[in-house]
Nucleic acid binder design. Structure first.
Length: 267
DNA sequence: ATGGTTGATCGTCAA
């Protein structure tokens, strides 16, 4: 059976509810994982999602910052909210679904951006990001017997040269420094994950999911980075039918600086 | 080298 999952850093779910609804109506993913919802739990717009066919919603929000939400057509159970680095940030949410022949744990993650200065000794935000990455090493693609895994989200790291507009110019820019890119590749390798975006669209093809708000003409300048990711347990590689990065969404009305990534499977 | 933009919230932080 077809199974589709999307991930999108929405940068305020309430402000951008209209374009989220447009996206869901047009692409009809079974599951949408949102990051940076910036929405306290008691103000989350549940009714809007239920009204367009998404009655199953898990949220992990806080006031002002961060926040993740998993919005689903399919029922799920065993919701887990992990407090990475024990700082009380709402940055992780996982659920377990049954789709086709498979049971799948879906992790929805929002990794700290890490601030501007890529030195953990002087920048506590970068220290936090590296600590978060270290804690991610415990995430295993085969964590539960008989359960496949998908990990999506804004991981705020672009691991490969083809994931940034200029490898040389970004080597000392947070998101593409060696300690981050090597750390991420270690998490992928040790955890038994497959980088599904790069299975479908291999290096060296350039692939971006984020363009800064600060760039004057994001489309023409095209100074993007691949900060959003879709990882899966090894068994899902054979089931993957394609990846779509919805670049056009960066040009929508009042856009997020991130665009949706859609993964399609036949399970 | 610097400043550039956006959102939540209401001066300032986070990204």
């Amino acid at each position: 059976m077809p199974f589709t999952i999307a991930t999108w850093n929405i940068n305020s779910v309430r402000l951008r509810l209209p374009i989220v609804e447009t996206f869901l109506r047009r692409f009809e993913p079974d599951i949408l994982c949102l990051q940076e919802t910036k929405c306290p739990n008691d103000l989350f717009p549940h009714a809007a999602f239920e009204a367009i066919g998404y009655p199953h919603v898990a949220i992990h929000g806080q006031k002002g910052y961060h926040g993740v939400a998993t919005i689903s057509k399919l029922p799920f159970d065993d919701v887990v909210r992990q407090d990475f680095c024990a700082v009380g940030d709402a940055r992780h949410l996982s659920v377990r679904v049954e789709a086709g022949e498979k049971r799948i744990r879906i992790h929805n993650l929002y990794v700290p951006a890490g601030g501007d200065e890529p030195d953990p000794a002087v920048n506590p935000k970068f220290r936090h990001k590296l600590d978060f990455l270290e804690e991610m090493r415990a995430m295993r693609a085969s964590g539960e017997p008989g359960v496949s895994s998908i990990l999506v989200g804004d991981l705020n790291i672009a691991p490969f040269e083809a994931d940034v507009w200029s490898h040389k110019q970004l080597l000392k820019v947070v998101s593409h420094t060696p300690v981050e890119t090597e750390g991420m590749i270690r998490v992928i390798t040790e955890g038994g994950w497959a980088d599904l975006m790069r299975h479908a669209i291999p290096v060296p093809e350039k692939l971006y999911t984020w363009w800064s708000y600060r760039a004057k003409d994001w489309d023409a300048a095209d100074k993007g980075r691949r900060l959003d990711h879709v990882w899966g347990s090894g068994d899902l590689v054979a089931d993957l039918r394609g990846i779509e990065v919805l670049r056009e969404a960066r040009g929508w009305e009042r856009p997020s600086d991130h665009v949706p990534v859609i993964a399609r499977f036949d399970l």
